[in-house]
Design a protein around this nucleic acid. Structure first.
Lengths: 204, 204, 204, 204
DNA sequence: TATGAATGAGCCTTCATTCAT
DNA sequence: GATGAATGAAGGCTCATTCAT
């Protein structure tokens, strides 16, 4: 039963991601999601309070998964730099592997930003704090500049990653997103690294 | 009458932009738009086939205006470089002057990408061609690299501008958009210009 | 148009009374009411906020009508006694003429007493005050006892009438309701009249 | 098991009475009743065919209890008069002890009069016959008038008791119901007793 | 042209009832 | 017997669209 339950919750969530991604939140019918998930309409409401909650839940559940996954993946990495690289790869890789999820996160959830604000603060803040931890560690290690508040730097990092994903989504997801991670990281180090001689012009 | 008509058409369009921007296409009611425009619900349908058409029309009309405006503004400028600068300024300036329009273009119209594809090709292609013209001119003038197809370069330019606007919209339009145009143009020339010594590392 | 409107409002109200009386509030479907009224489902919502409001409105509108009708009918009557008789006749007669309305008032509206409390206070109080006016007049005329507060006496009168109607409704409306008015009035005068020799035992 | 079963049947019935009384038949959810009874939703359907049956059963079971209880209580009483007094006391006392049951009998069961008619005839008739027996006995004893058919008199008695209870329920059960039994019995004897000199006008 | 009352298709959601465990 | 997750029919309500005036 326990497994069955988890299964159904998961199936509905996945179905919702697929349908929301495909036709947008407002054009998606709950009955379609139910059909896609292979359950009755009413069953959706056993697991989610309403259609809005379903959208919110996608965010919350997936964020929690990602945060968990990230903590595990990063814990053994030795330094801030490698951790940041890994974060970017996981972030981009996660969306590339699940384009529907990307569409929901970058398009549908933005739409409902108003109630996102209310509900999603928790998980989003936690993710930002993960980045913040890396930044702080980098500062202690002397590889990230310390003349800028962590609060600003973590936002910058998140903003840049997020923008890259949005651009990819809006372009129709036609190119290799993970392939951009190198350039993105480069940008970070150009921007936030302790003033090192720019690798681009490193002629000396 | 002719004027009155044009007036009403315009007022409905403006009202739609405002309402769509405010609450999104699907949550906007035709009756709200009508009220905002100061006309009866039915009147909307005298000027637009349906709600979808209304969204499409916003795109088409505004694009036509912009293209017209741009042709006039650019015709007397002497070279490609100054024309590109002007294009960016007009693009960013136009949206900054009308944030509601920006919201509709960058958010609502993306949503309905599917039917955007069908209807909006024309105007979008024309705008891209305007950029293409500048690029070609730049190549002839020897200031833009010629080892890259025009088709790619014009897309890159449009994509970058578009991304800058999207980022601005999604950030809540809190900063000066036109102020970014300098950096944006710099980026173009760093990216597409005939290899000039990088201003960043120009230590000489 | 004005007439058409009033007409539709009325027709929906009448249809609702009929349907509510026939199968009860909860088993009545809005679509049935609409069909009975000869309008589309949506039209009901042009005139009434929702199904609950429809029930409430029946009360409010009919009470207002009754109060108006009563004021007119009573104004020219010379004394409290005749006025009270008339009130009883109108009250009983009104329900007897419209048994569906009686069912709604005595059964359906009691059900939703909770929100009755909120909304209906106004009209009900006004009706009670009408009775109160008669009582006061009767006291001034010396035909009604003055050793009892008006507030209590008006409640007693209303309660007795109301009970008579309820009994009639619950019995299946099988007998002549107005025919009871004589006995009811007798009861009032036995109960509240200045101690007169009981007509029942008038052996003289 | 047998006991456990009876226990559950009883608990569900009591829960139903409580919930029906609290929010009315249509607004009561089977799941609420189950929760109140401390059983699973499905268990309700092991003991009752459906929600309607549950309401019906309340009537049938309670009526049977009452009839049984009455037979026992009355059998040893010597005359019709004392038996009638006892019936009234039991009827009023029973409801006063269980106001929820009163609410269900006087309000909810009236609602569903249509199917009451079909199902409840049996028990109601039996109860009426109990009254009829008392009436007949009274006639034989010469204390009840014999110029009126028993069928009418028993209905009159039942109607009056029932009305008194209804009035009490609808008033919010604020006063002592059993306290009314004296007046009620008085009324019976004023109404149906062999012509005794009216105590009110007992002049000489 | 302009109006806005009227329409009715369509969707979210509830909840009585079932049935596999 | 007991459970409670699952079902799906049904209905209140919204709102894009129409059309008589």
């Amino acid at each position: 039963m326990r497994l069955k339950q988890a299964d159904k919750h998961q199936r509905i969530l996945d179905a919702a991601i697929k349908i929301f991604a495909g036709k947008g939140f407002f054009q998606a019918k709950v009955s379609e999601i139910a059909r896609e998930a292979g359950v009755a309409d009413g069953t959706v409401y056993l697991y989610f309070k309403n259609k809005d909650e379903l959208l919110i839940s996608i965010f919350e559940v997936k964020m929690r998964e990602v945060i968990q996954q990230f903590r595990t993946a990063v814990s053994e990495l030795p330094d801030a730099q490698s951790r940041l690289v890994r974060l970017v790869e996981l972030h981009l890789g996660g969306f590339q592997k699940n384009p529907d999820l990307a569409a929901v996160f970058q398009v549908e959830l933005r739409q409902s930003y108003r109630f996102m604000r209310e509900y999603a603060k928790g998980e989003l803040k936690e993710y930002l704090d993960l980045i913040g931890d890396i930044v702080e560690r980098g500062q202690r290690e002397g590889v990230f500049r310390s003349d800028m508040p962590v609060g600003l730097m973590k936002r910058f990092v998140f903003g840049a990653i997020d923008e890259v994903v949005s651009t990819w989504v809006m372009s129709g997801m036609k190119y290799d997103l993970v392939g951009v991670s190198g350039q993105l990281v480069d940008l970070f180090f150009q921007g936030i690294a302790q003033r090192a001689p720019s690798p681009v012009c490193a002629e000396g």
